[in-house]
Amino acid sequence: MSILSMSLVIAAIHLAVPIILPLLGGLISERSGVMNIALEGMMLVGGLTAVVFSFLTGDPWLGLAAAAVSGLISGAALALLTVTLRANQVVASTAINLVGAGLTAALVPIIWGTDGTTPSVAKIPPFVVPGLSELPVVGQLFRELTLVDYGTFVLVVGVWWVLFRTDTGLRLRACGESAESADSAGIDVVRTRFVAVALSGAFAALGGAYLSIVILDAFQAGMTQGRGYLALAALVFGKWRVWPGVAACVVFGLADALALRSQIVAPDIPHDLLLAMPYILALVALATFVGKGTAPAAVGKEFARA
């Protein structure tokens, strides 16, 4: 079996999307001036919410929608702490991460009585693209990807368009570069940031739901495995821009996919070391390529009207 195949491409996409979605969330939040390192915790909450609602209704799409709502809520919680109450952004994010990890792990046995992993629920089915799926080789791609994968691509373009091509995006970025200037230009900094942080939660939660009801069909405690932080690394590495950030996510996803594939192709290479690949890659990327002065100037700074 060749290691380079269509299945590898599909696996890479499947493993890149759950980093791309929180990346978009982080981008929106940090461009508005709020450092969001709570993506990981929000992903876990979204992942569990998706499974709960897919379990209750039997409809994975409702699970996905519920996950987005859960993300809005955890995002709003972070916004309340950081934007409204002007708490330290890193500390507040850590609180969300700890509560998210603890709560999701505690709720699984409460709801199902099982330890750690939920039972299987309905998952989002692959979407067979008429016509394209008949093609040789690439046809597999159009048979195995889901609507969520296509939707993610639309979201990437959408976020890029809104942030960098519209007035709304300009206003949001102004809050992230200089809250005082934005304020004097009549922009409601507090409201803009609040909405941005809440939205970033929704994106992160969708990333978690992607793991639990698109790739798998169950939630497992701690299943995000640091993807929320990989998204942050991609954000920094991509210099807070959409396309370089997405490219970094794709590289991480590919590294992940390669690690999984080499388990089959080259069982001699220790599996655990391969699993560390994306993190090592992220670290190397941060060490070698990050220049200075690329973060939004006001990120991490609280804002209060005088």
């Binding site: 702490l81 409204t84 109450l85 002007r86 708490a87 330290n88 500390v91 507040a92 850590t94 609180a95 969300i96 991460n97 700890l98 509560v99 998210g100 990890a101 603890g102 709560l103 792990a105 505690a106 046995p109 409460i110 405690a221």
Partner: peptide, 22 residues
Amino acid sequence: VSREMVGVVSGLVVGFVAAQPA
């Protein structure tokens, strides 16, 4: 009460400490 509740409590503690200045 499950062991994971300790994690929830630590998260809440961090959250309240973060909110203290406010």
